[in-house]
Design a binder for these strands. Structure first.
Lengths: 129, 129
DNA sequence: CTAAGTGTATTATATCACTTAATACACTTG
DNA sequence: CAAGTGTATTAAGTGATATAATACACTTAG
């Protein structure tokens, strides 16, 4: 149940998921939503580890995955930076959204809901939005 | 990569998820979709364990969760049976579907998609359905 | 050049979820 | 009574996760 502000980023850490996944997801979200600007530097491995009171290796694991996502670039001796390419971020958003949708539809179909069921169901669920 | 037919139920087992979760999900789906009739007996713990070549304790874990879902009832000395109540099955479907939708929407919002974004996105994704 | 701060790599250890194994008990039915 | 149910217990093994300590290569500020 940690609750930390590091630079411009707010971290919510608990024990419901692996730590490195939570860090990864919160960076993904912050970058995707533009809460961190393109090209910005993100906290160093040691700095974030110290702030969140976790091991540097755990932060490293999240940062490596971020780079594989194409969301960050690392410069040895300088730090880790958000990609300057809006296209890369958009590609990531589009790709992950596709996976989310596929797996959501599969879940619903496993419960016996057809595609049209899903649409009407979701309309009811979010009338006000 | 197991692929087994046990009674009227077909099982797909791999190592991508815990075994007990896969068994659980496949029973949930079979019952929700009506592929197993209300009141039917499902395989005994030992029988399913033997057929899938896994430990009885692992099957037990899945069966206990099924009962907590309200989808099955156990009769000591007789076996495990699908609930005879259509209402219970419908309640389970409705409840789980709600959780799926909530978590799906949260995922999409974390990627920066608004509710209207999601709807148009999903329409494109499934034009033919 | 030096010191401090970067990312990176390695080795060891600890914990927890998951799974298996072996065994035993209580209950029901033929 | 025998065979088949669900259930409980104890022990052990494995892999993912996380920590700890340490070291190396690189970059920049001073």
């Amino acid at each position: 149940m940690e609750n930390q502000q590091v630079g411009s980023i707010h971290f919510q850490i608990d024990f419901s998921q692996p730590l490195y996944e939570q860090i990864l997801d919160q960076f993904r979200s912050s970058i995707a939503k533009g809460e961190i600007d393109l090209g910005d530097k993100i906290p160093s491995v040691r700095e974030l580890a110290q702030a969140l009171k976790i091991n540097p290796n755990t932060v490293m694991r999240a940062y490596q995955e971020l780079e594989r996502d194409g969301l960050t670039e690392k410069r040895r001796g300088q730090g880790t930076f958000v990609t300057a390419s809006k296209e890369q971020v958009d590609h990531f958003r589009h790709q992950l959204a596709g996976k989310y949708i596929e797996s959501f539809i599969l879940q619903m179909e496993n419960l016996g809901y057809s595609w049209s069921d899903i649409k009407t169901y979701m309309d009811k669920k979010h009338l006000g939005n």
